[in-house]
Amino acid sequence: MLEARLEQANLLKKVVDAIKDLVQDCNFDCNDSGIALQAMDNSHVALVSMMLKSESFSPFRCDRNIALGINLTSLTKVLRAAQNEDILTLKAEDAPDVVNLVFESAESDRISEYDIKLMDIDQEHLGIPETEYAATISMPSAEFQRICRDLMALSESVSIECSKEGVKFACQGDIGSGSVTLRSHTNVDKPEMNVEIDLTEPVSLTFSLKYLVGFCKASSLSGQVKLCLSNEVPLLVEYALANNSYLRFYLAPKIGD
């Protein structure tokens, strides 16, 4: 059986909120290392990969591999009933029909309990190899969100060019063009404001801004976001969570014109 207790419901609320517009029905794959999810959007352009390590829960117990097929719209409805600060416990039997969610207020004696019916989801799973990326950029997640939103006002695509000069986000649209260039930057007092560019070779790739803006819904999960790029492979956008847990998005590049 599965029993996984989160100190704050907020974490799961934010994760689900960040991915629910991208993917609808997902398997939450539970085993002794934690709870993982991988799902592609309907157009097969973007993929979300979540890992909540067992260390992110206290306690965490999962004796067997259990796949919880959950509709994220349903999960969102139930999670709305949880306060951000509530303790959240997920429970399921070994061959479950439902997943049970318990929300406990730390301040009062209120306990609420919900069951969500599970679905059989036959999901395509992609093998994503460990990749040595040509460029890795760590930057404030709010800055990345701002850049994507600002450029989307002009165009549906953005080119991300990384060179030893820095990283340049540029777009061209009907009304004109725009770009934002960031250079490496260290803020000793506020490390969350750091921009770190690790480059082994110059990279230039073009991506759909609609998807990037969607990924940025995860910004409240982490002060920093990591962008990993290599020529002619999908972009990795990673929001690191506590205890080596993460929320990652992969986005296929655009080609030619």
Binding site: M40, S43, H44, V45, A46, L47, E124, H125, L126, G127, I128, P129, E156, S157, T206, S208, V233, P234, Y250, A252, P253, K254, I255, G256, D257
Partner: peptide, 14 residues
């Protein structure tokens, strides 16, 4: 507008 790639062109289904 550049053409949009598909993720399955890069990663194999398992």
């Amino acid at each position: 507008t550049p053409l949009q790639n598909d993720l399955s062109e890069f990663y194999t289904a398992i």
